[in-house]
Design a protein around this nucleic acid. Structure first.
Length: 423
RNA sequence: GGAGAGAUGCCUGAGUGGCCGAAAGGAACAGUUUGCUAAACUGUCGUACUGGUAACGGUACCGAGGGUUCGAAUCCCUCUCUCUCCGCCA
Protein backbone atom coordinates (compact mmCIF):
# COMPACT_ATOMS: atom_id res chain seq x y z
CA UNK A 1 0.00 0.00 0.00
CA UNK A 2 1.36 3.36 -0.98
CA UNK A 3 1.52 6.20 1.50
CA UNK A 4 -1.01 8.94 0.91
CA UNK A 5 1.43 11.65 1.93
CA UNK A 6 3.83 10.46 -0.77
CA UNK A 7 1.08 10.44 -3.37
CA UNK A 8 0.06 13.97 -2.42
CA UNK A 9 3.53 15.36 -2.62
CA UNK A 10 4.63 13.52 -5.75
CA UNK A 11 1.51 13.27 -7.89
CA UNK A 12 3.27 13.59 -11.26
CA UNK A 13 5.98 11.11 -10.40
CA UNK A 14 3.47 8.61 -9.08
CA UNK A 15 1.51 8.82 -12.33
CA UNK A 16 4.65 8.44 -14.43
CA UNK A 17 5.90 5.45 -12.55
CA UNK A 18 2.51 3.76 -12.52
CA UNK A 19 2.46 4.06 -16.29
CA UNK A 20 5.54 1.80 -16.36
CA UNK A 21 3.27 -0.84 -14.87
CA UNK A 22 0.73 0.07 -17.55
CA UNK A 23 -1.46 1.33 -14.79
CA UNK A 24 -3.23 4.39 -16.04
CA UNK A 25 -5.52 5.88 -13.53
CA UNK A 26 -5.23 9.58 -13.14
CA UNK A 27 -8.78 9.52 -11.80
CA UNK A 28 -7.94 7.06 -9.05
CA UNK A 29 -4.91 9.03 -7.90
CA UNK A 30 -6.84 12.29 -7.92
CA UNK A 31 -9.74 10.66 -6.17
CA UNK A 32 -7.36 9.52 -3.43
CA UNK A 33 -5.93 12.98 -3.02
CA UNK A 34 -9.41 14.43 -2.86
CA UNK A 35 -10.55 11.91 -0.28
CA UNK A 36 -7.49 12.68 1.76
CA UNK A 37 -8.33 16.38 1.63
CA UNK A 38 -11.80 15.55 2.90
CA UNK A 39 -10.32 13.37 5.58
CA UNK A 40 -8.07 16.14 6.82
CA UNK A 41 -10.78 18.75 6.85
CA UNK A 42 -13.16 16.47 8.68
CA UNK A 43 -10.51 15.48 11.14
CA UNK A 44 -9.63 19.09 11.89
CA UNK A 45 -13.27 19.98 12.43
CA UNK A 46 -13.84 16.96 14.63
CA UNK A 47 -10.75 17.64 16.66
CA UNK A 48 -11.71 21.20 17.44
CA UNK A 49 -15.24 20.27 18.49
CA UNK A 50 -13.92 17.42 20.58
CA UNK A 51 -11.53 19.88 22.21
CA UNK A 52 -14.44 22.14 23.13
CA UNK A 53 -16.45 19.22 24.41
CA UNK A 54 -13.55 18.01 26.52
CA UNK A 55 -13.02 21.46 27.99
CA UNK A 56 -16.68 21.76 28.82
CA UNK A 57 -16.80 18.31 30.43
CA UNK A 58 -13.81 19.22 32.52
CA UNK A 59 -15.51 22.42 33.61
CA UNK A 60 -18.61 20.49 34.68
CA UNK A 61 -16.42 18.27 36.79
CA UNK A 62 -14.91 21.27 38.50
CA UNK A 63 -18.28 22.91 39.10
CA UNK A 64 -19.64 19.71 40.61
CA UNK A 65 -16.73 19.50 42.98
CA UNK A 66 -17.29 23.08 44.05
CA UNK A 67 -20.94 22.24 44.61
CA UNK A 68 -22.19 24.65 41.97
CA UNK A 69 -24.94 22.34 40.81
CA UNK A 70 -27.08 24.77 38.86
CA UNK A 71 -24.23 26.05 36.79
CA UNK A 72 -23.11 22.52 36.12
CA UNK A 73 -26.60 21.61 34.98
CA UNK A 74 -26.86 24.46 32.51
CA UNK A 75 -23.47 23.64 31.10
CA UNK A 76 -24.62 20.06 30.70
CA UNK A 77 -27.50 21.24 28.55
CA UNK A 78 -25.10 23.03 26.25
CA UNK A 79 -22.79 20.07 26.11
CA UNK A 80 -25.51 17.92 24.63
CA UNK A 81 -24.90 19.66 21.31
CA UNK A 82 -21.35 18.45 21.15
CA UNK A 83 -22.47 14.89 21.35
CA UNK A 84 -24.41 14.93 18.12
CA UNK A 85 -21.84 16.96 16.28
CA UNK A 86 -18.94 14.72 17.24
CA UNK A 87 -20.96 11.64 16.43
CA UNK A 88 -21.85 12.94 12.98
CA UNK A 89 -18.31 14.01 12.26
CA UNK A 90 -16.69 10.85 13.47
CA UNK A 91 -19.12 8.76 11.45
CA UNK A 92 -18.26 10.87 8.45
CA UNK A 93 -14.56 10.54 9.16
CA UNK A 94 -14.61 6.79 9.41
CA UNK A 95 -16.69 6.54 6.25
CA UNK A 96 -14.09 8.61 4.42
CA UNK A 97 -11.27 6.56 5.86
CA UNK A 98 -12.85 3.34 4.63
CA UNK A 99 -13.35 4.81 1.16
CA UNK A 100 -9.79 6.05 1.11
CA UNK A 101 -8.45 2.71 2.23
CA UNK A 102 -10.49 0.90 -0.41
CA UNK A 103 -9.12 3.12 -3.15
CA UNK A 104 -5.59 3.00 -1.83
CA UNK A 105 -5.35 -0.77 -2.01
CA UNK A 106 -6.23 -0.55 -5.69
CA UNK A 107 -2.93 1.16 -6.44
CA UNK A 108 -0.01 -1.17 -7.16
CA UNK A 109 3.47 -0.48 -5.93
CA UNK A 110 5.54 2.01 -7.88
CA UNK A 111 8.21 0.35 -10.01
CA UNK A 112 11.80 1.37 -9.39
CA UNK A 113 13.36 3.66 -12.02
CA UNK A 114 15.48 0.78 -13.33
CA UNK A 115 12.45 -1.36 -14.16
CA UNK A 116 12.08 -1.82 -17.91
CA UNK A 117 8.87 -0.77 -19.62
CA UNK A 118 6.80 -3.49 -21.16
CA UNK A 119 3.48 -5.25 -21.10
CA UNK A 120 4.13 -8.95 -21.41
CA UNK A 121 6.72 -11.55 -20.32
CA UNK A 122 8.37 -11.21 -23.76
CA UNK A 123 9.53 -7.76 -22.74
CA UNK A 124 11.39 -8.91 -19.66
CA UNK A 125 15.08 -8.15 -19.93
CA UNK A 126 17.59 -11.01 -19.74
CA UNK A 127 20.23 -9.72 -17.37
CA UNK A 128 22.54 -12.69 -17.66
CA UNK A 129 22.72 -16.29 -18.74
CA UNK A 130 24.96 -18.86 -17.17
CA UNK A 131 25.86 -22.46 -17.93
CA UNK A 132 25.82 -24.77 -20.90
CA UNK A 133 22.58 -25.93 -22.44
CA UNK A 134 23.00 -29.71 -22.16
CA UNK A 135 22.83 -31.95 -25.21
CA UNK A 136 20.57 -34.85 -24.35
CA UNK A 137 20.77 -38.36 -25.58
CA UNK A 138 18.40 -39.14 -28.47
CA UNK A 139 15.79 -40.99 -26.40
CA UNK A 140 15.62 -38.34 -23.67
CA UNK A 141 12.42 -38.15 -21.63
CA UNK A 142 10.51 -35.34 -19.92
CA UNK A 143 10.67 -35.44 -16.13
CA UNK A 144 7.18 -36.90 -15.63
CA UNK A 145 8.18 -39.95 -17.63
CA UNK A 146 11.51 -40.20 -15.82
CA UNK A 147 9.65 -39.98 -12.52
CA UNK A 148 7.55 -42.97 -13.54
CA UNK A 149 10.47 -44.89 -15.03
CA UNK A 150 12.46 -44.75 -11.79
CA UNK A 151 9.35 -44.83 -9.58
CA UNK A 152 10.35 -41.76 -7.58
CA UNK A 153 7.36 -39.47 -7.99
CA UNK A 154 3.84 -40.86 -8.26
CA UNK A 155 1.24 -38.47 -9.61
CA UNK A 156 -1.49 -41.13 -9.87
CA UNK A 157 -1.17 -42.09 -6.25
CA UNK A 158 -1.41 -38.45 -5.29
CA UNK A 159 -4.58 -38.14 -7.36
CA UNK A 160 -6.09 -40.96 -5.38
CA UNK A 161 -5.46 -39.61 -1.91
CA UNK A 162 -5.79 -35.86 -2.55
CA UNK A 163 -6.17 -34.87 -6.17
CA UNK A 164 -4.23 -33.56 -9.14
CA UNK A 165 -1.25 -31.47 -8.19
CA UNK A 166 -0.47 -33.38 -4.99
CA UNK A 167 2.25 -35.85 -5.97
CA UNK A 168 3.65 -38.59 -3.78
CA UNK A 169 7.45 -38.69 -3.62
CA UNK A 170 8.80 -42.18 -3.19
CA UNK A 171 12.14 -43.69 -2.19
CA UNK A 172 15.00 -41.75 -3.72
CA UNK A 173 12.49 -39.17 -4.89
CA UNK A 174 11.53 -38.44 -1.29
CA UNK A 175 15.19 -38.46 -0.24
CA UNK A 176 16.00 -36.00 -3.00
CA UNK A 177 13.37 -33.64 -1.62
CA UNK A 178 14.81 -33.85 1.85
CA UNK A 179 18.34 -33.39 0.49
CA UNK A 180 17.41 -30.25 -1.42
CA UNK A 181 15.65 -28.72 1.57
CA UNK A 182 18.67 -29.29 3.79
CA UNK A 183 21.06 -28.13 1.09
CA UNK A 184 19.15 -24.86 0.72
CA UNK A 185 18.77 -24.28 4.46
CA UNK A 186 22.45 -24.95 5.14
CA UNK A 187 23.51 -22.49 2.47
CA UNK A 188 21.14 -19.83 3.75
CA UNK A 189 22.50 -20.34 7.24
CA UNK A 190 26.05 -19.84 5.99
CA UNK A 191 25.25 -16.40 4.60
CA UNK A 192 23.50 -15.28 7.77
CA UNK A 193 19.84 -16.11 7.39
CA UNK A 194 18.23 -17.23 10.62
CA UNK A 195 16.13 -20.32 10.19
CA UNK A 196 12.50 -20.11 11.26
CA UNK A 197 9.77 -22.70 11.38
CA UNK A 198 6.55 -20.74 11.13
CA UNK A 199 2.99 -22.03 11.15
CA UNK A 200 1.81 -23.11 7.73
CA UNK A 201 -1.63 -21.71 8.38
CA UNK A 202 -2.24 -18.01 8.92
CA UNK A 203 -5.13 -15.84 10.04
CA UNK A 204 -6.84 -13.09 8.09
CA UNK A 205 -4.72 -10.29 9.46
CA UNK A 206 -1.58 -12.00 8.21
CA UNK A 207 -3.08 -12.57 4.79
CA UNK A 208 -3.86 -8.89 4.61
CA UNK A 209 -0.44 -7.85 5.87
CA UNK A 210 1.44 -9.29 2.92
CA UNK A 211 -1.27 -8.52 0.39
CA UNK A 212 -2.82 -11.93 -0.34
CA UNK A 213 -6.08 -10.69 1.07
CA UNK A 214 -8.47 -9.42 0.02
CA UNK A 215 -7.67 -9.60 -3.70
CA UNK A 216 -6.11 -13.06 -4.03
CA UNK A 217 -8.46 -14.81 -1.68
CA UNK A 218 -9.35 -17.46 -4.26
CA UNK A 219 -5.74 -18.54 -4.63
CA UNK A 220 -5.43 -19.78 -1.07
CA UNK A 221 -6.89 -22.84 0.58
CA UNK A 222 -9.23 -21.70 3.30
CA UNK A 223 -10.11 -23.67 6.41
CA UNK A 224 -13.62 -22.50 7.09
CA UNK A 225 -14.28 -23.76 10.59
CA UNK A 226 -11.29 -21.96 12.04
CA UNK A 227 -11.01 -19.20 9.44
CA UNK A 228 -7.39 -19.98 8.66
CA UNK A 229 -5.55 -20.00 5.34
CA UNK A 230 -2.93 -22.49 4.15
CA UNK A 231 0.11 -20.45 3.26
CA UNK A 232 0.93 -20.00 -0.43
CA UNK A 233 4.52 -19.17 0.52
CA UNK A 234 6.59 -18.79 3.69
CA UNK A 235 6.74 -15.10 2.85
CA UNK A 236 3.35 -14.72 4.51
CA UNK A 237 4.10 -16.04 8.03
CA UNK A 238 7.75 -14.95 8.06
CA UNK A 239 7.07 -11.37 6.98
CA UNK A 240 4.12 -11.16 9.35
CA UNK A 241 6.40 -11.94 12.26
CA UNK A 242 7.16 -8.24 12.00
CA UNK A 243 3.62 -6.94 11.74
CA UNK A 244 3.06 -4.02 14.15
CA UNK A 245 6.70 -4.07 15.13
CA UNK A 246 9.08 -1.17 15.64
CA UNK A 247 12.65 -2.41 15.32
CA UNK A 248 15.72 -0.59 16.51
CA UNK A 249 17.82 0.71 13.68
CA UNK A 250 20.78 -1.40 14.79
CA UNK A 251 18.66 -4.53 14.51
CA UNK A 252 18.60 -4.07 10.73
CA UNK A 253 19.04 -5.94 8.53
CA UNK A 254 16.80 -8.77 9.68
CA UNK A 255 17.59 -11.89 7.66
CA UNK A 256 15.29 -14.87 8.03
CA UNK A 257 14.79 -18.02 6.07
CA UNK A 258 12.25 -20.79 6.33
CA UNK A 259 11.42 -24.07 4.76
CA UNK A 260 7.68 -24.70 4.41
CA UNK A 261 5.31 -26.56 2.21
CA UNK A 262 3.32 -24.12 0.09
CA UNK A 263 -0.27 -24.50 -1.01
CA UNK A 264 -1.81 -22.89 -4.05
CA UNK A 265 -5.19 -23.51 -5.54
CA UNK A 266 -3.99 -22.37 -8.99
CA UNK A 267 -7.59 -22.03 -10.02
CA UNK A 268 -7.91 -21.77 -13.74
CA UNK A 269 -4.54 -23.07 -14.89
CA UNK A 270 -4.70 -26.39 -16.65
CA UNK A 271 -3.18 -27.94 -19.72
CA UNK A 272 0.00 -29.45 -21.10
CA UNK A 273 2.30 -26.65 -19.91
CA UNK A 274 1.44 -27.46 -16.30
CA UNK A 275 2.23 -31.16 -16.55
CA UNK A 276 4.23 -33.06 -14.02
CA UNK A 277 6.09 -30.86 -11.56
CA UNK A 278 5.65 -27.68 -13.57
CA UNK A 279 2.74 -26.49 -11.45
CA UNK A 280 1.49 -28.08 -8.25
CA UNK A 281 -1.04 -27.42 -5.52
CA UNK A 282 1.42 -28.38 -2.82
CA UNK A 283 5.16 -27.94 -3.10
CA UNK A 284 8.20 -27.32 -0.93
CA UNK A 285 10.18 -24.14 -0.83
CA UNK A 286 12.89 -22.43 1.15
CA UNK A 287 12.22 -18.72 1.31
CA UNK A 288 14.58 -15.92 2.29
CA UNK A 289 13.17 -12.72 3.77
CA UNK A 290 14.91 -9.51 4.72
CA UNK A 291 13.85 -6.37 6.54
CA UNK A 292 16.31 -3.60 5.75
CA UNK A 293 17.06 0.10 5.96
CA UNK A 294 15.56 2.00 3.01
CA UNK A 295 19.00 3.32 2.09
CA UNK A 296 20.39 -0.01 0.99
CA UNK A 297 17.45 -2.14 -0.07
CA UNK A 298 18.59 -2.20 -3.71
CA UNK A 299 22.06 -3.39 -2.78
CA UNK A 300 20.36 -6.11 -0.77
CA UNK A 301 18.21 -7.03 -3.75
CA UNK A 302 21.37 -7.58 -5.80
CA UNK A 303 22.90 -9.62 -2.96
CA UNK A 304 19.84 -11.81 -2.79
CA UNK A 305 19.89 -12.33 -6.53
CA UNK A 306 23.57 -13.26 -6.40
CA UNK A 307 22.91 -15.63 -3.55
CA UNK A 308 20.11 -17.44 -5.40
CA UNK A 309 22.38 -17.74 -8.42
CA UNK A 310 25.07 -19.30 -6.26
CA UNK A 311 22.64 -22.10 -5.44
CA UNK A 312 21.91 -22.72 -9.10
CA UNK A 313 25.63 -22.77 -9.87
CA UNK A 314 26.28 -25.23 -7.08
CA UNK A 315 23.61 -27.46 -8.59
CA UNK A 316 25.22 -27.00 -12.02
CA UNK A 317 21.97 -25.91 -13.62
CA UNK A 318 21.97 -23.62 -16.63
CA UNK A 319 19.99 -20.54 -15.73
CA UNK A 320 19.18 -17.02 -16.73
CA UNK A 321 18.20 -13.96 -14.76
CA UNK A 322 15.38 -11.74 -15.93
CA UNK A 323 14.63 -8.23 -14.83
CA UNK A 324 10.87 -8.20 -15.03
CA UNK A 325 9.24 -5.45 -17.03
CA UNK A 326 6.60 -3.26 -15.44
CA UNK A 327 3.72 -5.19 -16.94
CA UNK A 328 4.93 -8.59 -15.73
CA UNK A 329 5.79 -7.55 -12.20
CA UNK A 330 3.52 -8.39 -9.32
CA UNK A 331 1.16 -5.83 -7.91
CA UNK A 332 3.20 -5.37 -4.73
CA UNK A 333 6.74 -5.37 -6.08
CA UNK A 334 8.96 -2.38 -6.87
CA UNK A 335 11.55 -4.49 -8.63
CA UNK A 336 11.77 -8.19 -9.34
CA UNK A 337 14.35 -10.57 -10.71
CA UNK A 338 13.19 -13.96 -11.89
CA UNK A 339 15.59 -16.88 -12.11
CA UNK A 340 14.77 -19.48 -14.70
CA UNK A 341 16.46 -22.83 -15.21
CA UNK A 342 16.68 -24.63 -18.49
CA UNK A 343 14.64 -27.79 -18.57
CA UNK A 344 16.31 -29.75 -21.33
CA UNK A 345 13.75 -32.35 -22.32
CA UNK A 346 10.89 -29.90 -22.36
CA UNK A 347 13.31 -27.45 -23.98
CA UNK A 348 12.00 -24.50 -22.03
CA UNK A 349 12.94 -22.13 -19.25
CA UNK A 350 11.15 -22.65 -15.95
CA UNK A 351 10.92 -20.04 -13.23
CA UNK A 352 12.46 -21.35 -10.00
CA UNK A 353 12.89 -18.15 -8.05
CA UNK A 354 11.56 -14.67 -7.85
CA UNK A 355 13.42 -12.08 -5.83
CA UNK A 356 11.68 -8.81 -5.07
CA UNK A 357 12.09 -5.54 -3.30
CA UNK A 358 8.76 -4.28 -1.96
CA UNK A 359 10.20 -1.08 -0.55
CA UNK A 360 7.56 0.21 1.89
CA UNK A 361 4.58 -1.31 0.13
CA UNK A 362 4.31 -4.25 2.53
CA UNK A 363 5.69 -2.50 5.57
CA UNK A 364 3.06 0.22 5.26
CA UNK A 365 0.36 -2.40 5.56
CA UNK A 366 2.24 -4.32 8.21
CA UNK A 367 3.14 -1.19 10.17
CA UNK A 368 6.68 -2.46 10.20
CA UNK A 369 8.94 0.38 11.24
CA UNK A 370 12.33 1.01 12.69
CA UNK A 371 13.42 3.70 15.07
CA UNK A 372 16.58 5.67 14.50
CA UNK A 373 18.85 6.77 17.32
CA UNK A 374 17.25 10.20 17.17
CA UNK A 375 13.98 8.50 18.01
CA UNK A 376 12.29 8.94 14.67
CA UNK A 377 10.44 5.95 13.34
CA UNK A 378 10.00 5.23 9.66
CA UNK A 379 8.87 2.35 7.49
CA UNK A 380 11.43 -0.33 6.75
CA UNK A 381 11.89 -1.98 3.37
CA UNK A 382 11.03 -5.65 2.92
CA UNK A 383 12.44 -8.09 0.39
CA UNK A 384 12.01 -11.74 -0.25
CA UNK A 385 12.97 -14.46 -2.63
CA UNK A 386 12.68 -18.16 -3.20
CA UNK A 387 15.91 -19.96 -2.43
CA UNK A 388 14.59 -22.17 -3.85
CA UNK A 389 11.30 -23.76 -4.86
CA UNK A 390 11.81 -27.49 -5.25
CA UNK A 391 9.58 -28.95 -7.97
CA UNK A 392 11.06 -27.24 -10.99
CA UNK A 393 14.57 -27.74 -9.66
CA UNK A 394 13.77 -31.44 -9.46
CA UNK A 395 12.25 -31.33 -12.95
CA UNK A 396 15.38 -29.81 -14.45
CA UNK A 397 17.73 -32.07 -12.48
CA UNK A 398 15.88 -35.08 -13.81
CA UNK A 399 15.71 -33.87 -17.39
CA UNK A 400 19.18 -32.33 -17.68
CA UNK A 401 21.07 -35.04 -15.84
CA UNK A 402 19.56 -38.12 -17.43
CA UNK A 403 22.20 -40.59 -18.60
CA UNK A 404 22.38 -44.21 -19.58
CA UNK A 405 23.25 -45.04 -15.94
CA UNK A 406 20.33 -43.10 -14.53
CA UNK A 407 19.89 -39.59 -13.14
CA UNK A 408 23.20 -38.12 -12.06
CA UNK A 409 23.05 -36.16 -8.80
CA UNK A 410 25.21 -32.99 -8.84
CA UNK A 411 28.35 -33.37 -6.72
CA UNK A 412 27.35 -30.64 -4.26
CA UNK A 413 24.16 -32.50 -3.46
CA UNK A 414 25.61 -35.99 -3.03
CA UNK A 415 26.57 -35.45 0.64
CA UNK A 416 22.90 -34.67 1.23
CA UNK A 417 21.33 -37.48 -0.80
CA UNK A 418 23.82 -40.16 0.08
CA UNK A 419 23.64 -41.51 -3.48
CA UNK A 420 25.11 -40.43 -6.81
CA UNK A 421 22.53 -41.84 -9.17
CA UNK A 422 18.84 -42.42 -9.30
CA UNK A 423 18.47 -45.66 -11.23
C1' G B 1 -14.78 -30.70 25.40
C1' G B 2 -16.08 -28.89 30.99
C1' A B 3 -14.99 -25.11 34.97
C1' G B 4 -12.69 -20.66 36.45
C1' A B 5 -9.42 -16.21 36.02
C1' G B 6 -7.59 -12.43 33.19
C1' A B 7 -6.10 -8.75 28.95
C1' U B 8 -3.23 -1.35 31.12
C1' G B 9 2.94 1.77 28.08
C1' C B 10 9.54 -2.08 26.39
C1' C B 11 8.60 -5.34 31.12
C1' U B 12 6.31 -5.90 36.14
C1' G B 13 2.17 -3.59 38.00
C1' A B 14 -1.39 0.38 40.45
C1' G B 15 -5.72 2.56 39.05
C1' U B 16 -13.67 0.97 39.75
C1' G B 17 -16.77 7.57 36.58
C1' G B 18 -14.05 14.00 36.22
C1' C B 19 -7.81 16.15 39.39
C1' C B 20 -5.61 9.69 34.37
C1' G B 21 -2.09 9.43 28.46
C1' A B 22 -2.33 6.91 32.93
C1' A B 23 1.12 5.91 39.87
C1' A B 24 5.33 3.07 41.28
C1' G B 25 9.39 -0.06 40.20
C1' G B 26 12.51 -2.19 36.52
C1' A B 27 14.84 -1.97 31.66
C1' A B 28 16.79 1.36 28.00
C1' C B 29 19.04 6.06 26.54
C1' A B 30 21.64 10.85 27.81
C1' G B 31 24.24 13.70 31.42
C1' U B 32 26.77 14.53 36.28
C1' U B 33 29.76 12.45 39.94
C1' U B 34 32.68 8.75 42.27
C1' G B 35 35.94 5.54 40.33
C1' C B 36 37.78 -0.21 38.17
C1' U B 37 34.16 -3.97 34.83
C1' A B 38 29.90 -1.07 38.75
C1' A B 39 27.13 2.31 42.07
C1' A B 40 24.64 6.97 43.15
C1' C B 41 22.09 11.24 41.39
C1' U B 42 19.50 14.09 37.47
C1' G B 43 16.94 14.09 33.00
C1' U B 44 14.60 11.56 28.79
C1' C B 45 11.69 7.58 27.93
C1' G B 46 4.33 5.02 23.63
C1' U B 47 1.84 5.30 18.81
C1' A B 48 -1.03 7.55 15.11
C1' C B 49 -3.68 11.49 12.91
C1' U B 50 -3.88 16.70 12.67
C1' G B 51 -2.84 22.54 12.93
C1' G B 52 1.75 25.42 12.50
C1' U B 53 7.93 27.55 8.68
C1' A B 54 8.94 26.67 13.71
C1' A B 55 8.22 27.27 18.82
C1' C B 56 4.22 24.92 20.43
C1' G B 57 -0.79 23.09 20.20
C1' G B 58 -5.30 19.79 19.29
C1' U B 59 -7.49 14.84 18.85
C1' A B 60 -7.63 9.56 19.32
C1' C B 61 -5.81 5.12 21.48
C1' C B 62 -5.54 1.27 28.61
C1' G B 63 -7.21 -6.56 23.83
C1' A B 64 -11.20 -5.37 19.50
C1' G B 65 -16.05 -3.43 18.34
C1' G B 66 -20.53 -1.20 20.07
C1' G B 67 -23.51 1.27 24.12
C1' U B 68 -24.68 4.45 28.68
C1' U B 69 -22.98 9.56 30.31
C1' C B 70 -21.92 16.54 29.93
C1' G B 71 -17.57 13.23 30.96
C1' A B 72 -15.26 6.10 30.53
C1' A B 73 -8.97 2.54 31.51
C1' U B 74 -13.07 2.51 35.21
C1' C B 75 -20.27 0.93 34.15
C1' C B 76 -23.19 -2.32 30.30
C1' C B 77 -23.26 -5.64 25.76
C1' U B 78 -20.74 -8.55 21.91
C1' C B 79 -16.32 -10.66 20.09
C1' U B 80 -11.16 -12.21 20.18
C1' C B 81 -7.11 -13.90 22.70
C1' U B 82 -4.22 -15.64 27.01
C1' C B 83 -3.63 -18.31 31.57
C1' U B 84 -5.06 -22.14 35.45
C1' C B 85 -7.56 -26.78 36.74
C1' C B 86 -10.12 -31.24 34.82
C1' G B 87 -10.75 -34.49 30.43
C1' C B 88 -8.45 -36.24 25.85
C1' C B 89 -3.85 -36.68 23.39
C1' A B 90 1.41 -36.57 19.35
Amino acid sequence: MLQVSYIRENREEVLNRLSVKNFKSVELVDQIIKLDDDRRQTQTKLDSIAAEANASAKKIGELMRQGLKDEAESLKQQSNNFKEQTKDLSDKLSAIEILLQNELVLLPNLPHVSVPKGKSPEENVVVLEHGQIPQLMPNALPHWELAAKYDIIDFELGNKIAGAGFPVYKGKGAKLQRALINFFLDHADKVGYREMQPPIVVNEASGFGTGQLPDKEGQMYHIGVDNLYLIPTAEVPVTNLYRDVILKEEELPVKNCAYTPCFRREAGSYGAHVRGLNRLHQFDKVEIVQVVHPNNSYEVLEDMSTYVQSLLRALELPYRVLSLCGGDMSFTSAKTYDMEVWCAAQARWLEVSSVSNFETYQSNRLKLRFKSKEGKSQLAHTLNGSALALPRIVASLLENNQTEQGIKIPAALVPYTGFEYIN
